[in-house]
Design a protein around this nucleic acid. Structure first.
Lengths: 190, 190
DNA sequence: CTTTGATCGTTCGGAGCCAAATTGTACGAG
DNA sequence: CTCGTACAATTTGGCTCCGAACGATCAAAG
């Protein structure tokens, strides 16, 4: 995967492309590299530890959330895992089929569904997480502990900014404009 | 999407879960936040600038790569965009159908296909990129220019580590083990 | 010229994913 | 009790994505 074209070079070319227009170079670089790093890390982990356990990235994240937080309502799990409720339904069905996860109705509110790990799921995570963490250490091995903390803290700021002001910002941008349907997704009835 | 459970709290719980086992906390945190930030940024951009132009994230990245680097071979574009060759085939077909991209056979090597922007594609990027960059600035607005540079540089180290040593590392890990098929993907003929 | 092996892009199976529509439960107002 | 509203998970449709298999092309060797 080693691109022979460096990303910093791309940044200069983009600046040139825009001629007079002012562009935010540092912010462009940080976004581009966030996405690059995320892809690289995900691909490495899927093709090493997770492949051996026959788990996808998403399936692992869901297991991890349930493992850490214990039995939880599905809506919270979806939010923590960063996937939609609909996706979680499918993933948890698969995990249930493999005997890693258990689904329980909420005792007092019939609308809710709780997810928890089975004994087998618990055992799997106990074995798998250290391996996973080992690869996390591998991908970050060029950074010192302090650099890891600083980068993580910077990324948290990005997440917070989007979480706290993203929706408001999107509404401002679309102001009077049409909401424009997404290309995919279920269509209006009829 | 604002999780009422903080991610740092999750980190402590994970440590507790593992009892005696040593875990790499800082490295775990940096990986978790890379992925969180990537999802948040992608979602914000897809639901603001890109939605208006009816482009997916991937489609935009492909356009961006071709825009910056000019007419290129598809294998290089896929690599720069961080997607597989198979995915690029589909995406470029869509973009060609919308008149944003042009496909040309390589003059001397019949196996290669070159991609370039049409005039319409060029005009779109000229208009769209500044808007995109504006949102990049928004998501990074809690970071100073220097912080952006530092975070970007840290992330580049992660990308380089995986690019330069990832494959070797995966081979070491799987050592004598079976390659274990992926759950999805095309099966052996028959 | 023919064979062989490497390397393209494309095809295709299965999973992931979102968001609208749907179904089912809860609960207060009348 | 019955209605209506609110909110839960699920279903569904359309698209994205990866990676193995595939067919085409090229280059080197015999």
């Amino acid at each position: 995967m080693p691109g022979h074209r460096s990303i910093t070079e791309a940044e200069k070319l983009a600046a040139a492309k825009l001629g007079g227009t002012l562009i935010h170079r540092e912010q462009m670089a940080v976004v581009a590299n966030i996405y690059r790093a995320a892809s690289a890390v995900r691909q490495h982990l899927e093709n090493s530890v997770l492949r051996g356990a026959d788990l996808t990235w998403t399936a692992f994240v869901v297991l991890w959330v349930v493992w850490i937080w214990g039995e939880s309502e599905t809506r919270h799990i979806a939010e923590e895992a960063g996937i939609s409720k609909g996706t979680l339904t499918g993933v948890s069905r698969t995990l249930e089929g493999r005997g890693l996860v258990k689904r329980t109705g909420h005792p007092s509110d019939g609308r809710l569904v709780l997810l928890s790990l089975t004994e087998e799921g618990e055992a799997l995570m106990q074995r798998l997480f250290p391996e996973f963490n080992q690869e996390e250490a591998f991908v970050a091995s060029r950074l010192s502990d302090k650099e890891c903390r600083d980068v993580a803290e910077g990324l948290r700021q990005v997440v917070r900014q989007v979480e706290e002001h993203g929706e408001e910002r999107r509404l401002t941008l679309l102001d009077g404009a049409k909401p424009t349907q997404r290309r995919s997704g279920r269509r209006a009835k009829g």
